[in-house]
């Protein structure tokens, strides 16, 4: 465990908690893509099936349970508890265009052709693009609440820190996982445009709104 890995995990946790608290405090999930949140729940479910087969550490196990629990709590809030505030009309990204090709790719490009490994690979590929419905929704409405942008910032920062972690691990441990690295690079690139807007607008106290 190096500093990039730890801060990456904490950044990921911060993002998840910020989103949950935003929905809970405002009693509203306006501006949040339920589709992205379903994809993230699917990502955690397919990736952490190894909870049933192997024990890494107390840290590892607890974080997995927290991520899965929070992901389903978020989906529950959007599609059940605060359903009336969910802006489904703007959440129109066609997720089957992501899930189906990624399922195929996970079958074709993986480390080992076994069920758990294919599901893990699927989760890595899916995570890299799971934010697209949310970004699509923002581009459609042309704006995002500031708290939503903080969520996106920490979520993007997390994978960028993991990239640093992988560079660290390559140099100091000789460890590298090509599938995770390539997907992680794709995932981080998807946030670059957003990072730019976050720094130039939100951090200067302005609301994130896109030109019409």
């Amino acid at each position: 465990m190096n500093i990039f890995r730890l801060t990456g995990d904490l950044s990921h946790l911060a993002a998840i908690i910020i989103l949950l608290l935003k929905i809970w405090k405002t009693r509203s999930c306006a501006g949040i893509s339920g589709k992205s949140q379903i994809l993230f729940a699917l990502v955690f479910t397919t990736r952490y099936l190894d909870l049933l087969t192997s024990f890494i550490s107390l840290y590892n196990t607890s974080m997995k349970f927290i991520y899965i629990g929070c992901a389903y709590a978020t989906v529950y809030m959007i599609y059940a508890k605060f359903k009336a505030t969910y802006d489904g009309n703007h959440d129109t990204f066609r997720v089957e265009f992501l899930v189906v090709p990624i399922g195929g790719l996970a079958f074709l490009v993986n480390h080992d052709f076994s069920p758990l490994e294919i599901l893990w690979t699927f989760s890595i590929y899916l995570e890299s693009v799971a934010i697209l419905p949310q970004l699509f929704m923002i581009s459609k409405t042309g704006e995002a609440e500031t708290i939503t942008t903080h969520y996106l910032f920490f979520l993007g920062l997390y994978r960028a820190l993991y990239l640093m972690n992988w560079i660290w691990r390559f140099y100091f441990e000789g460890f590298f996982d090509m599938i995770a690295i390539v997907a992680g690079v794709v995932q981080t690139i998807l946030y670059c445009d957003f990072f730019y807007l976050y720094v130039t607008k939100v951090l200067k106290g302005k609301k994130l709104s896109l030109p019409a």
């Binding site: 192997s54 890494i56 974080m63 997995k64 991520y67 893990w120 993991y162 460890f175």
Partner: peptide, 10 residues
Amino acid sequence: DSATTEKDEL
């Protein structure tokens, strides 16, 4: 290529 067994990352 790399570890297919133990996934210590999240």
